[in-house]
Amino acid sequence: MPHAGLCPCWGGRVLPLLLAYVCYLLLGATIFQLLEKQAEAQSRDQFQFEKLRFLENYTCLDQQALEQFVQVIMEAWVKGVNPKGNSTNPSNWDFGSSFFFAGTVVTTIGYGNLAPSTEAGQVFCVFYALVGIPLNVVFLNHLGTGLRAHLTALERWEDQPRRSQLLQTLGLALFLALGTMLILIFPPMVFSHVEGWSFGEGFYFAFITLSTIGFGDYVVGTDPSKHYISVYRTLAAIWILMGLAWLALVLPLGPLLLHRCSQLWLLSRGLGLKEGGAPETDGLPRPQKIPISA
C-alpha cells in the first residue's frame, strides 16, 4: 500500500520481461521446428507408404474404408481404448489405474493417456483438482520442509570454526548428490530396463514427469504386451511423489549451498566480506533467508 508510486516502475519492468519471454518462446519454437520437422516428414512418409503397401496387399480394401478405419482407431485411442491385442484387455479404469490417474491430476502432471470422457467425470475431475492440487502442494511442502529443517539445523553457521563449516558444507553436498542419485538417476534406469526404453528415453521420461510437464508420450505401465508386477504402477506413483518432494527440498537448498560455497571461497581468499550485511530484522532462521537468485 505505501508504495503507490511504484506502479509505473512495475509497468516498466513487466514489458521487457514479457518481451524476453516471447522472444524465448519464439527461439524455442524455431529450434524445435528445425530439429523435428525433418523427422516428422520422414515418419509421415513412411506411414503413408505402409498404408499404400497394405492397400496393395489386401486388394479388397479401398482407400476410403481404410481412412475411416484409421479414424475409428484414432478415436478409440484418444478415448483410452487400447486397440492392440484382444478385447479381454484389462479395463483402463480398474482401481490401480484410477489411482494413478488421480495422482497425475493432483500433481498436475496430466499425462493424458487416461482422461475422463463422461460429463460427470469431467466435472468431478475439475473439483477434485481444485482441492487436490493445493493439498498435494501442502503435502509435498511438509515432506520438504521437515527434511530441510532437519538438514539446516546448522543454525549458527557463521560462528563455527572454518573446518567444521567446510565439513558441513561437504556433507550437505554429499547428501544432496547421493539423494539425487537415488531418486533421480536410479529409478529411470529401472524404468528403462522394465519398459525396454533406452536410458536416454528413461531420463527424458523422468524429467518430463518430475517437471510436471507430462506430455504422455512415455508413460510407465501402459504396454499391453508386457506383464508388469501388480504393484508396479503404485511403485511408480510413489516414486513420483518422492521425486517431487525431493525437488521441493533440493531446489531451495541449492542456492543456499551456492551461497555458502561462495562465502567459504571468499573467506579463504582473505576477503572477510560480510555478505549478508545488515541481517534481517526479524529473528527467523538465517539460512533460509537467502533468495533463490543467489
Binding site: T107, T108, I133, N136, V137, V138, L140, N141, H142, G144, T145, R148, S211, T212, L244, A245, L247, A248, L251, P252, E280, D282, L284, P285, P287, Q288, K289
Partner: peptide
C-alpha cells in the same frame, strides 16, 4: 516468506 510458510515446489 523466509522458509516458514510452505512454498510450492516447482509444481505450482
Amino acid at each position: 516468506q523466509p522458509g516458514c510458510c510452505p512454498e510450492g515446489p516447482i509444481i505450482m
